[in-house]
Simulated scan of single mutants.
Amino acid sequence: MVLSIIVPIYNAEKYVEGFLDSLLKHDISKPEYEILVMDNESLDTSYFILQNYAATYSCSKVYQQENKGSCSARNALLKKVSGTYVYFFDADHLLAYRALGLLVREAKRRLFAFLRFDTITTTEVNNFDQKLPIVVPTDLNNPNESDYLEQNSKGRMETWWYLVRTSFLTQINLTFNYNDSNGEVFITVPLLGSAKRLFQLPISVHFYNQSDFSIMHNKVMGHRRMIVQNLHGIIYDFSQRIARLKFSQVTNSVIQTLEKPKDIVVGFFLFKLLRSDISSNKAMAYLYTIMKIGAYTLKLLLMKIFLD
């Protein structure tokens, strides 16, 4: 089997049929890939819908566990994969028609450790062109980590924008550390630091649906408090990793490239903190920790506050 697609699910009945259909309508045989879905004790009909699909499509396998978060679900599914490559997907995502066949063929052809592609953001569940022409250049390069980061300085870090070799994940013993919807951002940095065969497909095959329930738009205070807490941890760990890289052989441009997504996370953290109901004492404790590690975005914000 070439590819295992991992999908954590929680209360996603609105999206289940859409993402499964987008993963099933492809020009490759079903034995070449599997769809592994972990339901985190959904309170809606998600699990029932998943079971119906699993009964119809042998490549679709559904599991259920106590709700410990999306990253815990991914770690559990990683132990069940059969594919040579792994693709981390989410319930509110879609894949362009015929894209899986393309990705599987590239996997067989290039034997990469890491293959990244582009994405399109949408607000409509079915807003993707099933006749989208996909043409892959024949002269893809194979950069090292430094070259890759320099060539893709605007690249995001989320895992749903790349495939990774399963044996490579096992070799470096990498798992998701955060049981929340942000943990997938952070696993990419050590992956890039260890991968020897990196490729970038300059095409958009992935579609991300921004809904009222997504991380960017969810207004439930409990959700915001959780996001603030986890973003705080991610900023700290991200800064620690960058600090360690400064003592290695990577170039300054690589460090600057990694600073960009860290700054984005800091900005997102501040936005969620200001819009949460977290107490002022707790908020100041968060900010003090971020100040100690010298988060660049926060420095600019504090300078603006005091100068104004």
Rank of each mutant, 00 (worst) to 15 (best):
V2K: 15
L3Q: 10
S4I: 04
V7R: 09
V7M: 10
P8Q: 03
Y10W: 11
N11D: 00
N11G: 03
A12I: 00
K14M: 10
K14D: 12
Y15S: 04
Y15D: 08
Y15M: 00
E17N: 06
G18L: 00
D21C: 04
S22Y: 00
K25G: 00
S29L: 15
E32G: 00
Y33F: 02
I35P: 01
N40Q: 02
S42W: 15
L43R: 09
L43T: 13
D44C: 01
I49H: 10
Y53H: 02
C59P: 03
S60L: 14
Q64C: 09
N67G: 04
G69P: 06
A73K: 05
A76T: 12
V86Q: 07
Y87Q: 05
F88E: 02
A91Y: 05
H93W: 11
R98P: 08
L100Y: 00
G101I: 04
L103S: 07
V104Y: 04
V104W: 01
R105S: 14
A113M: 11
L115I: 07
T119V: 13
T121H: 10
E124G: 13
Q130Y: 04
Q130E: 15
T138D: 13
D139P: 14
N142P: 02
S146Y: 08
D147H: 01
E150M: 00
K154T: 07
G155M: 08
R156A: 11
M157Y: 12
T159G: 08
T166A: 14
F168I: 02
L169R: 01
T175A: 08
N177D: 09
N177V: 09
N179H: 02
N179D: 07
D180C: 08
D180I: 07
G183C: 03
F186G: 08
T188K: 14
P190D: 10
S194G: 09
R197T: 01
R197E: 12
L201P: 11
I203A: 13
N209A: 12
N209L: 14
Q210W: 09
S211I: 06
I215Y: 09
H217K: 14
H217Q: 15
K219P: 13
V220A: 14
M221T: 03
G222Q: 03
R225S: 06
H232M: 01
S239T: 13
Q240V: 12
R241K: 14
K246R: 13
N252G: 05
S253N: 11
S253L: 09
S253C: 06
I255S: 06
E259S: 04
E259I: 03
V265E: 10
L270C: 15
F271R: 13
K272E: 15
L273N: 00
I278R: 00
I278N: 02
M284T: 09
Y286T: 12
T289N: 14
T289A: 14
M291I: 15
G294K: 08
Y296T: 10
L298Y: 07
K304D: 15
